[in-house]
Design a protein around this nucleic acid. Structure first.
Lengths: 206, 206
DNA sequence: ACAATATTGGCACCGAGTGCCGAATGGAAG
DNA sequence: CTTCCATTCGGCACTCGGTGCCAATATTGT
């Protein structure tokens, strides 16, 4: 007796139709090589598509825009960060919890570090990507603001909750820029220091 | 005896050649009307040029991009902010000075407020402009970071100085969003409150 | 009138991104 | 194996932002 389609569990739907001819990850790899060689601006979507052996039209089915190529699985990682926030002890002060989670969120396997560095160099140094990043970071900010709101007992739209989201993001960007400008220095340390400054309102000390 | 060219003062050079057929300000007015009517995305550069009675090519001599139309004389105002920073008493704490200057920088004549509101609605709500704003804000951040650096006695590239620039900008954006979402509320008050929170590291109080 | 100079705007071109649609692919059911 | 259906592919044509080039036009000084 053959298995019926309706017998299949909901969470493992049957695959019908033509299979995808590549993956986001594969396209990303191909694109990064071209970006490395020719620069981001000089690399056209046509170039990437040709190098990946797909049609230009198909490229835009894998990525909304050329800009989005450099963002990898950023969105998916946000769920992980949200979980980390949920695990924080309830008595821990807001900014201390924020500091720990954000630093942890930006910890990478040593083997991935050079890769991550190239990614962030693109995002933070190429004007088009620098601009586009604002849109990607919105989700990141939302996660932070959400956590801040619950800790402060206010609505997510609250001024302070949003300010925490924006300020934390800003400090992280400063840290990342510093990290890019100083190869060899540990990213976690920089982030931790910068977030520590934020938590005390940037008071000058001796 | 006729005045020679060389007699003219340096700061008032002689005008030769064809006169500009319009001004940035005029183009801005025309464009804003179209943005209001049709929305930013739906308004093409052709539309603006036609409405202003100039060629499309000419438009791009007045503005680097369609995005730049909404920024008015932003760059010029930064000089003013730099001066304000220079006037701050030397014994005033960094964040307190920052707070005063930034709030003052964002004070507008009541007659200009509705205009400014539309401008900021565009910048903060239209995705393309939201993204582009990152590039414009870089100069603003630089001014703040410069001030922070001198106050902290560090280099402008210092992590903390840059973090102050980023964080202050972020908090201001949160304040602006709040202002847009709550018409009728005073912008200065919101900015002051938000920057106050930043200065104390967002500690929860009763 | 003439020379020098600055702006204008048309034209052609490039690259990102989109709607449309037929072709290709592969699993499922008969 | 054949048919049916779902899904992806990729070419084509189009829109729009933006740029390089260059002749036409306007304005002022000599």
């Amino acid at each position: 007796m053959a298995a019926k389609l309706s017998d299949r569990p909901e969470n493992l739907p049957v695959r019908r139709g033509r299979r995808p001819s590549t993956t986001r990850h594969d396209l990303e790899r191909v694109a990064f090589e071209l970006f490395e060689r020719d620069g981001f601006e000089a690399t056209t979507v046509d170039d990437i598509a040709k190098a990946a052996g797909i049609g230009r039209r198909t490229f835009f089915r894998y990525f909304e825009s050329k800009n989005d190529v450099v963002w990898g699985s950023f969105i998916e990682q946000l769920d992980h960060m949200r979980e980390q926030f949920a695990c924080r002890p309830a008595d821990q002060p807001l900014m201390a919890a924020l500091r720990e989670v954000v630093v942890e969120f930006n910890r990478f396997d040593p083997a991935e570090v050079p890769w991550h560095r190239r990614r962030m160099e693109l995002i933070l140094r190429v004007p088009a990507l620098q601009a586009h990043s604002t849109l990607r970071y919105a989700d990141w900010r939302a996660v932070v603001a959400e956590f801040a709101a619950t800790r402060l007992g206010v609505d997510v739209d609250d001024l302070v909750a949003q300010a925490v989201g924006y300020a934390t993001l800003g400090v992280c960007l400063a840290a990342y820029e510093h990290w890019l400008a100083h190869p060899g220095v540990d990213l976690s340390g920089i982030l931790d220091a910068a977030l520590g400054e934020l938590a005390v309102g940037f008071v000058a000390r001796r």
